[in-house]
């Protein structure tokens, strides 16, 4: 049996396949089901200081088989009610709260709140493509200085993962800025900003018009971003781990991210209609390692990097 265990920013995980933020994580009950399905860790939906009801629907649309655009609008009950309901001390597997805020000060408050509630690690969402309704401005993750400031504010309270956007000219620069600001890890990628049009109604399909693309179409984009982030961090002398996200629907997809140097991965859209798929992906990753005769993740992590020009 291949050993799938991995250390991630101070957490010891049984396997590197994590539940991604925003998918099947709205209630403690569904989160428990995802833990039992075999998640290495659970990342919660994005939590803001104040409650957010989410955007008007339609919130999701499948644009190609398995590939979706969504604009949920970061629905969440706000920090206080979230902390009342969710146990961050971790039951069966570690729970990593995902935090979203408009300012570094807010990120600091959120980080302090979840740290006090027992979280050992948080992910900060710097990269939702639609943080406000019909938003078209710059994302935090599109500005190295803004990203660094947010990371620094949250990192005062607990180790943080900075979640990055694929929609940047050079993700390496952003990853290095986050690492230098004290990020314990970076995760990439968030959904790709996208739009779909209904030709009958001659208007955007989603209630919020703009959304984020997720699913298999995102895999090659995510791999490129992760590889670029890994290399930039390495070149700058940082050992900051990178978590690969985007388009994973099989164990081999997860292996691809590890071959690009990822420390762990997150899975989201592939679980739509099939929540138990999460654990199966971890099992398939183990099968792939067996077939390749790898006893540990370290044995092959980053192998694809040496082929780069």
């Amino acid at each position: 049996m291949a050993d799938l265990s991995v250390e991630l920013a101070g957490l010891e995980l049984a396997n590197p396949v994590l539940l991604a933020s925003g998918i099947l994580d709205s209630t403690p009950g569904i989160l428990e089901r995802m833990a039992d399905s075999g998640a290495g860790a659970l990342v919660t939906k994005s939590i803001s200081l104040k409650p957010r009801p989410g955007y008007a629907g339609p919130t999701v649309a499948e644009v190609a088989p398995g590939t979706w655009i969504n604009a949920m609008g970061l629905p969440n009950p706000g920090l206080a009610e979230f902390l009342d309901e969710f146990d961050l001390r971790g039951g069966k597997v570690p729970v990593i709260p995902n935090l979203v805020a408009d300012t570094p000060a807010e990120f600091g408050k959120l980080a302090a709140g979840v740290s006090e509630a027992g979280a050992k690690l948080a992910e900060i969402n710097l990269s939702c493509p639609h943080p406000q309704a019909a938003y078209t401005g710059l994302l935090t993750a599109q500005d190295p200085e803004a990203a660094a400031t947010a990371v620094a504010a949250a990192s005062e309270h607990l180790p943080v993962i900075a979640k990055l956007s694929p929609n940047v000219s050079d993700i390496g620069t952003i990853a290095v800025a986050c690492a230098e600001a004290g990020a314990a890890a970076v995760s990439a990628i968030n959904t790709m900003p996208a739009l779909d049009i209904d030709t009958e109604l001659e208007r955007p399909v989603l209630g919020n018009a703009f959304g984020g693309l997720s699913g298999p179409a995102l895999l090659p984009i995510g791999l490129r971003c992760v590889l670029k982030a890994v290399r930039a961090l390495r070149d700058a002398g940082h050992a900051t781990p990178v978590i690969g996200i985007g388009g994973i629907s099989s164990g081999e997809d997860a292996a691809k991210y590890h071959l690009c140097g990822a420390q762990a991965v997150q899975v989201g859209t592939a679980l739509g209609g099939n929540p138990e798929r999460l654990g199966e992906i971890a099992t398939e990753l183990g099968d792939w390692m067996e077939r390749k005769d790898y006893a540990t993740l370290d044995a092959f992590r980053g192998n694809a990097l040496e082929w780069l020009p």
Binding site: G29, L271, G272
Partner: peptide, 14 residues
């Protein structure tokens, strides 16, 4: 919110 098994807000128990 989504209706298609992606977000989980309609969960009863598990």
């Amino acid at each position: 919110a989504c209706g298609v098994g992606l977000c989980g807000v309609c969960t009863i128990d598990r």
